[in-house]
Structures are given as C-alpha cells and as structure tokens.
Design a protein around this nucleic acid. Structure first.
Length: 425
RNA sequence: GGAGAGGUGGCCGAGUGGUUGAAGGCGCAGCACUGGAAAUGCUGUUUAGGGCAACUUAACGAGGGUUCGAAUCCCUCCCUCUCCGCCA
C-alpha cells in the first residue's frame, strides 16, 4: 500500500510515477481523503465536548449533587444532543475511510528510480548473461516433456485424470530429482544465511491482502470457500505474514528466510500458453528467499538476494540471463524486480526461473509489519524482499534439456549427484 | 463435532460503570552510585489519526447496544487454550 500521507503531500509526483506502470487516476482518492479529514475534524470536536460533558456529570455527582438536579439534567440533554450529531457523522466517516482503503489496496507500488521505463516485457533490460560455455552442443534436443515421458519420470496424462490439465506426477528418479533439487537449494541458502521455514500452505484472506495478491488478483488463486482459506500461490505469502502486526526490534533486522513450498496458481487467462511440460502448472514446487530489512538497505539487499538466487543456477551450470523488469512489467507489490531466465534449448529462448523483487514498505504497510529502534520514538515499516531460489519444476525442465545427451540420456549436474546418488537418468 | 476457560501495553499481569491510556512487574532508555561492571535507587517508556503548534481524538479480540459517561453491563461474531470424540 502506498503512503496516504505522502500521497497527500505530493500528489503530482505519485501520479507521474504511477503513470509509468499504466493509467491510474489518483484524484478520486485525494478528494475522498480531503472530505474524510474534514469530517474527522468535526467529529473529533464533538467527541471532545461529549467527553467534557461526561466528565462534568461525574464530578458533580461525586461532589454530592443529586442526579435529578436540573444542572445535571441539562448536561445530560446536551450529551444526548451531541450523541445524536455524532451518530450522523460517524457512519459517513467510516464509509469514506472504507472507500479510501478499498482504493488504496488496488494501487500498485511505485517503481524505483532505477527501474527502466517501458510499457511491456519487450522493454525489460538485459543486465547480464552467464554460462555461455555451458550451452548444449547436442543438436537434437527433445523438449523436456518428451524426454521426461520417454524416461518414464514424468506423467501428464494420468495426472490429468487424477486432477486436471496442468498437473504433473513425477515418478521414480523424477521424484527423486525434484526432492534432490529442493534439498540442494535449501541447503545452499541455509549456508548462505537464510533460516528455513516450512510454513502453512493454506493462507487466509488477510494474508493474501497483506502481500498484495488480494483484492486485485483473486482469480489467480485457488480458494477453499467454506473456510476463508486459499492455497498459497507462493511462499512469499506465508512468510510475509509470519510477522504480520508485529513490531520487530531493529537489532533483529535483517531477517533472512528461505522456504520450500508447493505453489498453486489458477493461471486464469493463460489458456493455450505453455500447455505442455513443466513450465506452467497449477501446482509446482518452489524454494523461496525472503528478507525483512531496514529501509536504507533494501536496494543493496536486492542485489545480494539476486546473487543468492543466481548461485543456484551457477552451481547447476545452467546458462541464464538477468533482466531488470521495466515499469510496465513490474509486479503489483514490487518497486524493482530482476528476473533470472534460464536457457531452454527446445524453445530456443530464455524462460523465467526466478523473480527477485524489492517491495520496499508496500507489504510492510499492508501487513502492519514494523520495526523499532531502541530509545527512539515511533516505529517504521520494514522493507520486504522476495525471490525464487528457484522454481523447482522449471529447474527440472532446464536440466532435462540442457543436460540431454545425443543417446537420449540425461546427465545429472555434479552438485546434485551426492543427493540423487546417480550420474545419469 | 461436544463441553469448558479465556482474549488488556514490547512481554507478563491487575482492573469497583465516573478524570484509567490503563495499577504492579519484566524488558528497555536516561541519571545516580562504581576504577569499570553487576546489584541497588531515582526518572522515563503504547500505538495510530488530525492540527504549524498549544492541543485533540481513537484503540483493552471485532462489531453492535444500554448510559451524560463502558476495559468494566447486554447481544452477535471471531480467535486461542484445556478436556472428550475422531484422525496422520
């Protein structure tokens, strides 16, 4: 959520910033805000009077004046009048506040100054490439779903029977490879200083609102209707909300967490895209990196977060590139995002395998996650960052293709061999 | 699912319808004491909104109600805990 107070103070710059992400007219919310504050001033005056009347009645009764005394009756009457006025103002103000809140929740984070300006993903900026020397030389690489089914480690058809399309089952060495990847990713990030959390993967509405998936993107998540619970679309949601409504001691920051979770996405509106393979499924595994940090450090922390995610790709020797997303392609909660894209030979292009974002205080404000410096007055919102480290299914896809041999076998990346206890699929 | 108990500040924990934003304690900060520290003593210490400010308003799980006045009384809802049942 953007800061209403700051918006009020410099509306033009907010409006200009938001325009970079697409159209969003801030004038209605500014108007509502002004009206609300006028009502608030009136209301608070009335309440002050009401408190005063109450106090006087109390004092007089205690000093021995009879409650039936005309003096007291007069005060009671005034109290009743004030109450009547308040009962008109209060609902109006509450309604205004609710409207303002509702709008604020749909306004995306403002892009950072270092976020390139652009409208679509075509204007994302490539910042680096890595691993050209590992680009496969095998000219006849099968798409990962074909080699996977040939090897008997993936099964889509039966999974459609069990659930729907866009689900997969991993069999034998495929399941073991997925587990090995998860284990390898977690252990690497734990060694890098992240504390593992294995969180709930059903989350409530408030949690999805705090991290930014709701209210705007409700159609993207699976919902358990009778329970106010949703299947989490990313571990970012439970981890952000782990500290919701808390005040963290400044010396406890930064906090680094990593988490493995299944992730669930409805992929509404993506009909016909990536219908085959492991790229776009309703359920997939992901190891997530998450940071809670002090405001001054969040952009440096984004760089190291990205490096930590890159370390996995480098260890697996998978060629990839790094993009900075342009303003038009930025996620709702993010102010600046790096995407890591891994080389997928069958497609002949790079595909997203990690997205690392600095959400600044956007989620902190929505989730009321603050920190306090000892001895200092007041609190500040924490800055949050998240990044995939990595999407496991897409990593598997990248391995099945980049490590595919001309004889139809797939080598296992060296770093995984101790986990999987084999060298070839 | 059945029965019961409970939700108060960063934490623990009092609280009779009347000046209680809330006793007491812990923690934290400052000062004193000390060569320095510990212990001790004193002082201070919730958050959020509005206002340039003085100041003012709100908040004791949430929402209603009674009252001049509600943490305190009434109603509804939510959540947590304990026991029983069921279950990995």
């Amino acid at each position: 959520m953007i800061d209403l107070k700051q918006l009020r103070e410099n509306p033009e710059s907010f409006q200009a910033c938001l325009r970079l992400r697409g159209e969003f007219d801030l004038s209605p919310v500014l108007k509502l805000d002004q009206h609300q504050r006028e009502l608030e001033a009136k209301r608070s005056q009335l309440q002050a009077r009401s408190n005063e009347v109450g106090k006087q009645v109390g004092q007089k009764i205690q000093s021995g004046i009879s409650p039936q005394d005309p003096e007291i009756q007069a005060l009671r009457d005034e109290g009743n009048q004030v109450k009547a006025q308040l009962s008109e103002l209060e609902p109006q103000e509450r309604e205004l506040k609710a409207q303002i809140e509702e709008i604020l929740l749909t306004i995306p984070n403002l892009p950072s100054e270092t976020t390139p300006i652009g409208k679509t993903e075509d204007e994302n900026v490539e910042v680096s490439r890595w691993g050209d020397e590992y680009l496969p030389t095998n000219p006849n690489i099968l798409p990962h779903w074909e080699i996977g089914e040939k090897l008997g480690i993936l099964n889509f058809e039966r999974s459609t029977k069990v659930a729907q399309s866009r689900f997969v089952s991993l069999i034998g060495a495929g399941a073991a490879l997925e587990r090995s990847l998860i284990q390898f990713m977690l252990e690497t990030q734990i060694a890098a200083g992240y504390t593992e959390i294995l969180p709930p993967i059903l989350v409530n509405t408030q949690s999805l609102t705090a991290s930014g998936q709701l209210p705007k993107f409700a159609e993207e998540s699976f919902k358990c209707d009778r329970d106010d619970l949703w299947l989490t679309p990313t571990a970012e949601v439970p981890i952000t909300n782990f500290y919701r409504d808390e005040i963290i001691a400044a010396e406890d920051l930064p906090i680094y967490h990593c988490a493995y979770t299944p992730c669930f996405r409805r992929e509404a509106g993506s009909y016909g895209r990536d219908t085959r393979g492991l790229i776009r499924l309703h359920q997939f595994n992901k190891v997530e990196l998450f940071k809670f940090v002090q405001p001054e450090t969040s952009f440096e922390e984004l760089e190291t977060l990205r490096t930590d995610a890159e370390a996995i790709l480098q260890a697996l020797k998978l060629p990839y590139r790094v993009l900075t997303l342009c303003t038009g392609d930025l996620g709702f909660s993010s102010t600046k995002t790096y995407d890591l894209e891994v080389w997928l030979p069958s497609a002949g292009k790079y595909r997203e395998i990690s997205s690392c974002s600095n959400c600044t205080d956007f989620q902190g404000r929505r989730g009321n996650i603050r920190f306090k410096e000892a001895g200092k007055k007041g609190t500040q919102f924490v800055h949050t960052l998240n990044g995939s480290g990595l999407a496991v299914g897409r990593t598997m896809a990248a391995i099945l293709e980049n490590y595919q041999q001309p004889d139809g076998t797939v080598r296992i990346p060296e770093v995984l061999q101790p986990y999987l206890r084999r060298e070839v699929l």
